[in-house]
């Protein structure tokens, strides 16, 4: 099956500075991919490049076979966008925003939009400015789904939301995900991603660290805990290391060789990966 999103060596330059360099990732249909990284890692620039807010300076971004460089309008029609900031005109009511902006999409259906609003419990008569942050996100999701996108892009939409809503939101996304659609989700909520994501891409300082399925992450990276002596013995194989109260902990990449020490080995969380691969 053709991938929904294919990024091949893409990069963004502003002036003489590279903001993002050599990103390669693929989102398959029915896949939920998370993008993680510290602030300033390049997540937003990546999303801006995918949705046409940023110029693609090198490489290419393909959406359902169409090139973002050469056919941006075709690509944008396949995209549903959920951002943290308010890019809709906030004077409009939910219903009118659907009417006005939906007209720009070939496959948009106002009836579907209103059905999704009902399903997500968003008042269609309410002014966008008066919606709570959670309802505004639901509105964006309803609008995105009403034009049947192949890719839903979400750039840290959950910032400032309570934990209950965040979980409900992830459940909602999981419900709407089907075999024709993929989700690319930039977030700092690594716990939620561990529960829901099928794949994850990590960025650091404008470069891609990895883009793997969750299974591959589990297979390739391990956390090892042991005494200082044991960790000193392993130090050449460790990607990162930190001192705890009673033991030391490190991250290593599985290379098929035995450890030769009696240290405890466990699966790393995404937060661990970020800490060891991207901290000073």
């Amino acid at each position: 099956m053709e991938p929904i999103l294919q990024i091949e060596g893409a990069g963004a330059v502003r002036g003489t500075t590279f903001w993002l360099r050599n990103v390669n990732l693929t989102v398959e249909p029915g896949t939920f991919m998370g993008v993680i990284g510290r602030n300033g890692a390049g997540k937003t620039t990546l999303f801006h490049m995918i949705c046409g807010l940023s110029r693609i300076s090198e490489g290419n971004v393909r959406l359902a076979g169409a090139s973002m460089r050469h056919e941006p309008e075709r690509c944008k029609r396949q995209m549903g966008i959920i951002f943290d900031d308010d890019y809709f005109r906030l004077d409009l009511s939910v219903k009118h925003a659907g009417i006005i902006y939906g007209a720009y999409y070939e496959r948009y259906s106002q009836a579907d939009f209103l059905n999704y609003c009902r399903k997500f419990e968003v008042d269609a008569r309410q002014n966008l400015r008066k919606l709570s942050k959670g309802d505004y996100m639901k509105f964006q999701l309803a609008f995105a789904l009403a034009h049947r996108p192949k890719l839903i892009l979400m750039d840290e939409p959950e910032a400032g939301l309570d934990p209950v809503f965040r979980r409900e939101w992830m459940n909602m996304l999981y419900d709407v995900l089907d075999d024709t659609c993929g989700i690319l989700f930039a977030t700092h909520l690594t716990e939620e991603l561990e529960q829901y994501a099928d794949a994850v891409t990590m960025l650091s300082k404008g470069r891609q660290v990895f883009s793997l399925t969750m299974l591959e992450v589990e297979e390739q990276y391990k956390i090892v805990r042991g005494s200082k002596v044991q960790m000193d013995y392993l130090s050449k194989r460790l990607l990162g290391r930190r001192k705890m109260e009673h033991y030391e902990e490190g991250l290593f990449r599985e290379d098929g060789k035995e450890l030769w020490v009696e240290a405890s080995v466990s699966r790393p969380g995404l937060a661990d990966l970020m800490y060891y691969l991207d901290s000073k």
Binding site: G52, E73, K76, R77, Y87, F88, R89, Y104
Partner: peptide, 15 residues
């Protein structure tokens, strides 16, 4: 008729 179009101009699928 406040015709300001911010980010949306770049996000809508139109030339």
């Amino acid at each position: 008729s406040n015709l300001q179009d911010f980010k949306l101009l770049y996000l809508l699928p139109i030339t």
